[in-house]
Write a protein that binds this DNA or RNA. Sequence first.
DNA 1: CGGGCGTTTGAATCAAATCAATTGGAGTGG
DNA 2: CCACTCCAATTGATTTGATTCAAACGCCCG
Lengths: 252, 252
Amino acid sequence: MLDTSAAVLPASTPGAPPPAPERQRPAAWRIGEAMSLIGRTLAPLRHVVHEGEAICRAGQRFECLYILNSGCAKIFSLAGDGREQMVSVKFRGDWLGLDGIADGHYTCSTVAMDTGEVWIVRYQALLSAASMQPALLSLLHAEMSRQISRERESLMSVCTLPAGARVAEFLRLWADSLDERGLRNDQITLPLSRAEIGNYLGLTLETVSRSLSKLARCKLISFAERRRRDLQIPDIDALAAYVQRSVAPTLQ
Amino acid sequence: MLDTSAAVLPASTPGAPPPAPERQRPAAWRIGEAMSLIGRTLAPLRHVVHEGEAICRAGQRFECLYILNSGCAKIFSLAGDGREQMVSVKFRGDWLGLDGIADGHYTCSTVAMDTGEVWIVRYQALLSAASMQPALLSLLHAEMSRQISRERESLMSVCTLPAGARVAEFLRLWADSLDERGLRNDQITLPLSRAEIGNYLGLTLETVSRSLSKLARCKLISFAERRRRDLQIPDIDALAAYVQRSVAPTLQ
DNA sequence: CGGGCGTTTGAATCAAATCAATTGGAGTGG
DNA sequence: CCACTCCAATTGATTTGATTCAAACGCCCG
């Protein structure tokens, strides 16, 4: 047998090279560059969507990818029985419909939560453009890869955190997503009902409401005057600390 | 504004064409063809792994993709704090390490649960081969897409099912995976401890054990003579029905 | 102003976690 | 071969955290 151990586990070799610089670039720059490249080389169809409008539907034939240029969207997976599960929230720069590539049909439905703009790209057109422009292919791969990682994070939260921390982590990740896009991350206007948040996090709407009230009581968030849907996060790190604390309450 | 509604929502048009035939082919055929293509065109390094051996580690620099030719593997995501979450189980034909493409480092660790063979492909080599052989690119995309869909299914189970059904669904999906690979799906040898299953499903090991005992009491599964880790599934549909029942206990 | 919906909050219930004890194989060494 | 430990798994008793059921509030809109 060949000695392939180095190939399988190069990291086990001591003195491995330091991490590559890809991660250093600010995310906002990455997203802006990506959108610009797509805009330049693919001339995507631009389409304005409004709150509640479907972008693509589960079961529908796969032909296009959708790239969010503005606004935000929610992705639902629906089981054969009635079960409906929100599996992801998407923001500017995120790609929608990637789940349809494998078998030629979308497996999830996507709905706009805001008014925003989606760029529509035919998958075949993307592939042919990519053969001229390898950067486009890298973009597609990076986006798919990121989507795999991101959704694993959700699973982690849902499986390992108690209700309160799950809600806190949800807010933290939302704020993070805004931050990555160069938006202010200390205030959020949630376009989701408590019931939807609950569905996403595997909780009931009452539990979500209670958790938010508790976070407010602890001064980790505060609600705006009138609308209980927009809230402020005075200290994002304190929110992260709250999550940590509930993970290892014994250690600190 | 352009009228792009047809492009955004072609399915809303009545009389859409019937589903494409991609899905009809038996999965075993698809997987076999894929492995054969990879073997022919990429001459991947073949490496035998044993139980407990790491295939790739979180944080390690991304360079290779790993394709399981035999055996099975588990994927772990690890948070900054101690939390460790099993996020996926992989079988023959599945690709490992796709999460590393986005930022140049793997975000998860993968460990063999069996002795098996992984095929090792440098990502760059795959890309250059793919520019000659578009089928290879399709394979990569299909596999990433499938991984996105699959892991959404996990989230669905974990968020919407009670403990007993979650365990039943886990077994059902495992049997399905065997079936897709042309193996017999009426008996499973679990290479996972109760604790690991619990971690995967967001349950404690005691709850997993109780759920399995209950499934056995209901004759939906039965244990082998000595080892409580290999079990038989006399009727896979009955197991599916059990899951359904606990989703909508009022309706039937 | 009144109806409807989303949200909050309380009290009772329940499912799963925790705590704790026992069983049963697998492996080791006398 | 048996006695021994070690660890995985099972099972029971109890606690706890989240759900369920129920009521009330506040906001938006006709």
